[in-house]
Design a protein around this nucleic acid. Structure first.
Length: 839
DNA sequence: ACGTGTAAATT
DNA sequence: AATTTACA
C-alpha cells in the first residue's frame, strides 16, 4: 500500500490516511501494542487481569522479540477496540511498578509507505487578518489565545488547485483579476464558510508564517465563541493550548484531519542563515522576494478597501514564493516518507531518530526501552572537539582539509553503539578501544572498548544512511540541474544528511532512550583522534618533488589552525604558486591522508586488522585561501580565495547583531586592512556615511531570551533599553521577534531620574544610554528623534561597531586611535566620561 | 525539548 | 567572576 498523506489523532493515536491524493481520510485499523521482558510474563498477565483486560481484548502475543542487548521480550498486540485511554492507564501502572516498557514508539509509526511527492499533498498556505490587530496590547496571555479581535479575512493558496482564495467580512465588494474572493456578512459566516471548505477539500497540510502561534489558535478560539467546531473530520474536536516558558510561549494546536505546520518553525530549523528579524517581509527581502509595500492591514480595511484586498494576498504570495525557492515542505515530506511518523513529530531530532531507529529494527523484531538510565546524569560531562589557538598573523596559500561527516563516520568506523560498548578492563574479544585514543591525549585510561564481533545498531543504521545518501548524491550529480528530478535527489540526500547529523547529538541527551554519555564521549574522542592524526601528519611535513601541473614541486605544509574536523595548512614553497597549483596540492595532500589513515591510525587502537575494512573516515579539500588573516583567537578568521570571494568565520561581518550597513562597511574595511591599504580617510568617510544611513540599517539586532525580565540575574543593556521606552514612552512589546537596538543620547532632562534608575548610572551632562524597539515602533521612534527627545549616538555606534572591531588587526591600532581622536574633536566630545556608576 | 567549545560585551 | 548572546 502506498498512501499520499497521513494524519494521526493526538488524543488516541488513531491513524488516518489517504489512498489517493486529494481524497477523504480513511481510518487505519492498527492495534495498540507494547513489549515487556519475558521473565515478567506472569506478573504482566496478573496485572492485565487486575485491570479488567480479558483474553478477548488481546489479538495475539509474539514471544520472539528481543531488545538491542539481546534481552528476550514479549510483544502484546491489543484488539483494535481497546481505547488509547485504557492502554495508557495500564502502561502508567506498569511504570509505577518500575516495569520497563519497550517499543512504545511503534504506535506512532505508520506501517505503510507514505508518498514523498509534494504534488500528492493538498497544502494550504494561509494568513488571517484581525480587526484592531495593530493595537493589541502586551498581555500575559498571547493575543491569539485571548482572541479579542474579530477575524476579518482568511486568505489561502491551495497547492492542488493552484488558486488563491479569500473569505472576507465585508459589505463592500471589489473585483480582482485572478483571485477568488468570497464576501460574507459576519465573522460567524466567515468561520462557517472556512470550516465547510475544510471538510469538503480536506487539506493535508495547513501552513502559515507563525501560524502555530497566531492564525491557527485565533481561528480555533474565535470558532469557539460561535460554537463552531473547526475540524475536517466530523465528530473530532480541535484544541489550542499554550505554555509559558522562560523564552516565550509554546503552542499546541490540533485541527482534526489537518497537519498543522508553522513555516517559520520550519525556516528556523532548516535555514542556516540567521536573519535580523523573523518578520515575513524581512525574510522575503533576504530571499529576493518582492516584499509587501507597507503594513496596513486593518487600517486599510477601513480607509482603502481595495488596497486591503491587495495586501491580504501579498503575505500568502510571499509564502508560496518562499516555498518555491526553499522547498522546505518538500524536505519535510521527504523526511516523513523515510521516518513514517506524523509531520509535527519530525521537528524534534530526538523523536525523529528514536522512531527511525525503532522502524529500522522492526523487521529484526528488535526494540528498546523508554529509558535505560545508562550514564544519564546531567552532571556527567563529556569532552567535545579540539580547537587550536591560531597566531595573530596573515598567511598566503592556505588549504583547508576537513573530514566528511566526521561524527557519523567515527560511529561507523569504530562500531560505536550502546550495546557494543564493553566497559570492561578485561574484555578480550575483537574490539577497538577508544580509551587508548583518549589516553594518547595524556588523560587517564578508561576502557571504552567496542566489540567488533557484532554490528551495533547505531553503526548499522549509519552505514545504511551513508549508503542511501551517497546513492542520491550520485543520482543528483548525474542529473542536469534543470531536470525536475534534480531537486528531488537533492532533497533526498539532504534528508539523509539531516538524520546523519542528528545521530551524535541525541546520544548525549537524556531524552533519547538509547543515550549513553560514554558513547557520546567515544564519538568525540574518536573524532579528536582522527583530527590529531591529520594534524600530526601534516604539520611541518616536507613533500619532495611532487608532480603538480607538469612540474616537480617541493613544499612544506604547516598546520596553523584546526577546529573539530578541519585542518588549515599553509603551503610553504620556494616557487610561485598559481590557483591551479594550490588546488592540485590540496588534492595531493588529501589523498596522502586518505591513503594512510586506515593502516596508520584506525588499526592502531584495535586488536584486529579487520577494522581496516570498516574505515570510512575520509578527508576532502574544503576551501582554499589566497590570503587569510587570523587574529590570535579561536573561531575567528577573515580571508579570500583566488577569485576574491570572502571566506570568513566568527567576525562581526557575519554576526546578526551587526547592523546591515555596518556589515557592508566592515567588509570593505576588512579587505583594505588585509591588503594593507587601509587609510584614515576611509574611516572618516564611513563615519559620515553612517550618519546619512536610514535608522533601520544601522539598528543592532538583539534577542530577548527571557520574557519575564525578573528572571535575569544581570539585566543586559538591551533589556534596560526596552524598559526606557516602555516606561517613558509607553511602547508595547510582544517580544516574539528580534529587536532593534540603538545607542542614544537622551535629551529630555525631566526624565533623567527614570533613566538613571533604569541604567544604574548618574548623568552630569549628557545621558549616553540606549533604546530598544520592535520593528513596528520605527515610525514612532523616528518621531521622537525628530522631536529631539533623543538623538542617535553615532559616535558610540562607530566606536563600538567599526573602530573596536577593526582593532583585531593589531597593526592598525595606532591609526584607529588617531581616527577616534579626530572624530571626538569633530563632535566636540570630551573624552573624560560624564557617566559615573551609582553603586 | 540534539551535543560541546569559544569569543566578546557587559555587569 | 559571572552572565548573556551569538557563533562554529
Amino acid at each position: 500500500m502506498n498512501v499520499s498523506a497521513i494524519w494521526q489523532n493526538p488524543n488516541n493515536k488513531q491513524f488516518y490516511y489517504k489512498e489517493r491524493p486529494f481524497s477523504k481520510w480513511i481510518k487505519l485499523n492498527k492495534s495498540l501494542t507494547f513489549l515487556f521482558e519475558r521473565h515478567l510474563k506472569k506478573e504482566i498477565v496478573q496485572l492485565l487481569r487486575e485491570n479488567n483486560f480479558k483474553n478477548s481484548d488481546i489479538k495475539n502475543v509474539e514471544e520472539d522479540w528481543k531488545d538491542i542487548f539481546n534481552k528476550p521480550l514479549v510483544k502484546v498486540n491489543f484488539e483494535n477496540n481497546i481505547s488509547y485511554y485504557r492502554y495508557n492507564n495500564f502502561l502508567k501502572k506498569l511504570k509505577e511498578k518500575g516495569i520497563g516498557i519497550y517499543g512504545r514508539d511503534i504506535i506512532n509509526i505508520f506501517p505503510y509507505d507514505i508518498s514523498e511527492r509534494i504534488e500528492d499533498k493538498r497544502i494550504w498556505f494561509l494568513d488571517i487578518e484581525v480587526e484592531g490587530d495593530e493595537d493589541i496590547a502586551e498581555d500575559s496571555v498571547p493575543s491569539s489565545i485571548l482572541a479579542k479581535g474579530m477575524i476579518i479575512s482568511i486568505t489561502y493558496y491551495d497547492s492542488y488547485e493552484k488558486e488563491y482564495y479569500s473569505i472576507i467580512v465585508s459589505r463592500e465588494k471589489v473585483d480582482t483579476f485572478n483571485k477568488k474572493i468570497r464576501f460574507v456578512d459576519s465573522e460567524e459566516e466567515l468561520l462557517k464558510t472556512f470550516n465547510n471548505l475544510l471538510k469538503r477539500k480536506v487539506p493535508d497540510i495547513i501552513t502559515g508564517w507563525y501560524s502555530n502561534g497566531y492564525d491557527i489558535p485565533y481561528i480555533i478560539n474565535r470558532g469557539k465563541k460561535y460554537h463552531i467546531i473547526i475540524s475536517a473530520i466530523d465528530g473530532l474536536k480541535p484544541y489550542s493550548s499554550y505554555k509559558k516558558q522562560p523564552s516565550g510561549y509554546r503552542f499546541n494546536n490540533s485541527i482534526p484531519g489537518v497537519n498543522l505546520l508553522d513555516y517559520m518553525e520550519l525556516y528556523k530549523k532548516y535555514i542556516f542563515e540567521k536573519p535580523p528579524s523573523y518578520k515575513l517581509d524581512e525574510i522575503a527581502r533576504i530571499h529576493n522576494i518582492e516584499g509587501k509595500s507597507e503594513y496596513m492591514g486593518f487600517l486599510n480595511y477601513k480607509k482603502n478597501f481595495e488596497k486591503f484586498v491587495e495586501y491580504i494576498f501579498r503575505d500568502v504570495e510571499i509564502l508560496v514564493e518562499l516555498e518555491d525557492k526553499l522547498n522546505l515542505l518538500n524536505l519535510i515530506c521527504g523526511l516523513q516518507s523515510v521516518i513514517r511518523i506524523p509531520i509535527n513529530m519530525l521537528l524534534a531530532p530526538s523523536i525523529s531518530i528514536e522512531h527511525y531507529l525503532q522502524q529500522f529494527l522492526l523487521p529484526e523484531k528488535k526494540s528498546f526501552k523508554e529509558n535505560y538510565n545508562i550514564y544519564s546524569s546531567k552532571n556527567v560531562d563529556f569532552e567535545g572537539a579540539i580547537v587550536l589557538q591560531p597566531p595573530d598573523k596573515k598567511y598566503e596559500n592556505v588549504i583547508v582539509l576537513d573530514y566528511a561527516s566526521l561524527y557519523p563516520n567515527a560511529i561507523q568506523t569504530f562500531n560505536l553503539s550502546p550495546e557494543t560498548l564493553r566497559y570492561d578492563f578485561n574484555y578480550n574479544g575483537k574490539h577497538v578501544d577508544i580509551g587508548l585514543m583518549i589516553q594518547d591525549e595524556g588523560k587517564d585510561y578508561i576502557p571504552l572498548k567496542y566489540t567488533l564481533e557484532i554490528e551495533g545498531v547505531l553503526p548499522s543504521l549509519i552505514r545504511y544512511l551513508l549508503k542511501e545518501r551517497l546513492k542520491f548524491k550520485q543520482l543528483k550529480k548525474s542529473t542536469p540541474p534543470d531536470n525536475p528530478e534534480y531537486i528531488k535527489y537533492d532533497i533526498k540526500q539532504s534528508n539523509y544528511k539531516i538524520l546523519l547529523n542528528s545521530m551524535y547529538g541525541v546520544i548525549g541527551t537524556e531524552r533519547f532512550p538509547l543515550h549513553d554519555k560514554r558513547v557520546a564521549a567515544s564519538i568525540t574522542g574518536g573524532a579528536r583522534g582522527a583530527l590529531r592524526y591529520m594534524n600530526n601528519k601534516l604539520n611541518n611535513h616536507e613533500f619532495k618533488d611532487v608532480d603538480i601541473n607538469g612540474r616537480k614541486i617541493s613544499f612544506r605544509t604547516e598546520v596553523i589552525y584546526s577546529d573539530t574536523d578541519s585542518s588549515f595548512n599553509v603551503i610553504h614553497c620556494e616557487e610561485k604558486l598559481s590557483k591551479e597549483d594550490v588546488v592540485q596540492i590540496g588534492r595531493y595532500i588529501a589523498t596522502y591522508i586518505n591513503d594512510n589513515i586506515a593502516k596508520e591510525f584506525v588499526v592502531k587502537y584495535s586488536n584486529t586488522e579487520e577494522i581496516i575494512n570498516r574505515n570510512s573516515l575520509k578527508v576532502e579539500v574544503d576551501k582554499i585561501f589566497k590570503v587569510v588573516r587570523f587574529f590570535g583567537v579561536k573561531k575567528r578568521y577573515f580571508g579570500y580565495d583566488f577569485d576574491k570571494n570572502i571566506i570568513t568565520h566568527g567576525v562581526e561581518i557575519v554576526r546578526v547583531d551587526t547592523p546591515r550597513k555596518i556589515k557592508d562597511i566592515l567588509k570593505d574595511l576588512f579587505i583594505k586592512a588585509l591588503d594593507g591599504v587601509l587609510k584614515k580617510e576611509d574611516l572618516i568617510r564611513y563615519y559620515n556615511v553612517i550618519k546619512q544611513t536610514p535608522l533601520e540599517e544601522i539598528a543592532i539586532s538583539k534577542t530577548v531570551t527571557k520574557i519575564d525580565f525578573d528572571k535575569y540575574k544581570t539585566i543586559p543593556n538591551h533589556v534596560r533599553a526596552i524598559q526606557l521606552m516602555r516606561e517613558i514612552y509607553k511602547f508595547k512589546y510582544t517580544l516574539n521577534d528580534k529587536l532593534l537596538y540603538f545607542h542614544i543620547k537622551y535629551n529630555n532632562r525631566r526624565n533623567y531620574r527614570i533613566v538613571e534608575r533604569i541604567f544604574n548610572k548618574k548623568f552630569k551632562d549628557v545621558a549616553l544610554v540606549s533604546a530598544c524597539i520592535e520593528r513596528e515602533h520605527l515610525p514612532q521612534f523616528v518621531k521622537l528623534v525628530k522631536a529631539n527627545e533623543l538623538e542617535i549616538d553615532y559616535y558610540t555606534l562607530f566606536d563600538k561597531q567599526v573602530l573596536s572591531t577593526l582593532k583585531q588587526f593589531s597593526e592598525y591600532r595606532e591609526i584607529i586611535k588617531e581616527v577616534k581622536n579626530e572624530i571626538e574633536k569633530m563632535e566636540g566630545i570630551n573624552n573624560k566620561s560624564e557617566q559615573l556608576k551609582l553603586f
